[in-house]
Design a protein around this nucleic acid. Structure first.
Length: 259
DNA sequence: AGCGCCTACCGCCAGC
DNA sequence: AGGCTGGCGGTAGGCG
């Protein structure tokens, strides 16, 4: 909105997503913008915020009496600036009537996909997520978001296994354990897994675990040792090595960028 | 940084 | 014959 300054056009939209990030504080003082947001809300336009975008909605006085979330590091600030707003800092995204808000940056993608699912269908949402996976995989092959991993799940018995893996990240996910769970021989399991999931069992499990850790690291403040345990790494060192292998950056540095 | 150990992966092959 | 299955063992690479 600020970049294009075509506020009138914005009022024709069905949905307005308010991004946060650098400059959010200035935006929160832009009376013209805030007036547009109030106008939009009055017209029943669906509003959503990403990260610190919630503070802009708060400045427009739209969060009173509602539930909302934001990046965890700004939860306190949101509480101060949005009296009467119930801030749910652990949520990925929150819907309160026609106003949505989401946590840190990647949570915005979850919110967007949820809106697509609501407007269209789960199938369309998953198809979009699948496209994003293909797109985001290319530059460095690093970006992985949980909703997108979900989109990669199969619809056969291996889809159920993938779900099981996600529900048991902290448990024993050795090849032997997974083969056993699928009632298959180790050899046959490895072969079938590769064919259906297009990845080797161990590499896939590590991807899931690192993704879980990534989310926890960027949107929470648990010590790494705890994150490691919750995500199925034997110790902090194992988490660090796997994380660096996949993300090309150390967990602490990653957290720093989001702090 | 390095080293021995262990797991995962996969080609190979025999059996069904 | 040809496909599926599963055990074996060499190799690579991660882990402690």
């Amino acid at each position: 909105l600020i970049a294009h300054a075509s506020f009138e056009e914005a009022l024709d939209a069905d949905t307005l997503l308010i991004s946060g990030g650098i400059g959010y504080a200035d935006a929160a003082q832009d009376e013209r913008l805030l007036a547009v947001l109030r106008d939009a809300a009055g017209r029943g336009i669906r509003l959503g915020s990403i990260c610190t975008g919630s503070l802009i909605l708060a400045a427009a006085g739209l969060l009173g009496g509602r539930r909302a979330t934001t990046h965890w590091a700004y939860a306190e600030e949101l509480r101060r600036r949005a009296p009467g707003c119930e801030v749910e800092e652990d949520a990925i995204y929150v819907r309160s009537a026609d106003i949505y808000s989401s946590a840190g940056v990647s949570a915005g993608m979850d919110l967007a996909l949820a809106l697509v699912e609501q407007d269209w269908s789960r199938d369309v949402s998953l198809a979009v997520a699948q496209q994003l996976v293909l797109y985001l995989k290319r530059p460095g092959g690093q970006s992985q978001f949980s909703r997108m991993l979900e989109a990669q799940r199969n619809d056969d018995s291996f889809g159920a296994l993938q779900r099981w893996i996600e529900d048991h990240v902290a448990g024993d996910l050795s090849i032997a354990a997974m083969a056993d769970h699928m009632a298959m021989s180790v050899r046959q399991f490895s072969r079938a897994f590769r064919d259906r999931v297009h990845d080797t069992p161990a590499r896939y499990v590590e991807r899931i675990r690192v993704e879980r850790a990534r989310r926890s690291i960027s949107e929470g403040r648990s010590p790494l040792k705890l994150v490691a345990r919750e995500c199925g790494f034997h110790n902090e060192q194992a988490l660090r090595r796997a994380f660096h292998r996949q993300m090309g950056i150390a967990p602490v540095d990653y957290r720093q960028r989001f702090a």
